[in-house]
């Protein structure tokens, strides 16, 4: 057994936090999990950066802007195992629906031509991360070790993957968990 708790970091990039909400649906099982796991950077605890020696990184959402890329790279550098969580991280998901249009078209619709727009201008503050021309799944930018599918993946799937990893096993999802219809 390891001498320290397993360190888990989580983040939501271009996602809706639905995967995190689903993760929290493990409910009281989180008490048992905390016996073996400590959370590093995560929206759950608001820690801002990853511990340099994390074991598992759970990434929700795809990449839509420069900040997403920076965060993803920090996770890859800090975490031994990266797991792409949910449809957006794996395929781009709903945010990637903008890929059918040019970025210019999207921004003009949102900030210039859209119904109810006041003081039309495309934001250009240096504090704002620039948007990528297309939304990408995370495996196109870093190596991803495992994929946890679903929109969102059910709480049981999170538990199964984490339990397998805690037990030192290769994670595997039984068909019941992967079957959505």
């Amino acid at each position: 057994m390891s001498t320290r708790k397993i360190r888990v970091a989580t983040t939501s990039l271009a996602g809706c936090f639905g995967c995190h909400m689903s993760f929290l649906d493990i409910d009281e099982r989180i008490v048992g999990l905390i016996e073996h796991v400590e959370f590093s950077r995560s929206p759950i605890n608001d820690i801002k950066h990853c511990h340099p020696d994390c074991d598992i990184g759970l990434i929700e959402g795809g990449l839509c802007n420069a900040e997403n890329v920076h965060v993803l790279k920090e996770f890859r550098e800090s975490c031994k195992i990266i797991i792409a969580v949910g449809a957006c991280a794996i395929n781009g998901g709903v945010p990637a629906m903008r890929n059918h249009f040019t970025l210019k078209e999207c921004l003009e619709e949102a900030y210039l031509d859209g119904i109810g727009v006041e003081n039309p201008m495309i934001p250009n503050d240096v504090e704002l991360p620039l948007l990528l021309s297309k939304v990408h799944p995370i495996h196109e930018v870093v190596h991803v070790d495992y994929y946890l599918p679903g929109c969102p993946p059910p709480a049981d799937a999170f538990m199964k993957v984490l339990t397998d990893l805690l037990e030192g096993k290769e994670p595997s999802l039984p068909k019941e968990i992967l079957h959505f219809d």
Binding site: A66, T102, L103, K104, L107, I122, P123, N124, V126, P129, L130, L131, L132, S133, K134, H136
Partner: peptide
């Protein structure tokens, strides 16, 4: 290169861009 389009639209060329 994936940021080029956004740079042109926002007229930015700072380090963060």
């Amino acid at each position: 290169a994936a940021l080029e389009e956004a740079r042109q639209i926002s007229h930015r060329d700072d380090a963060e861009a």
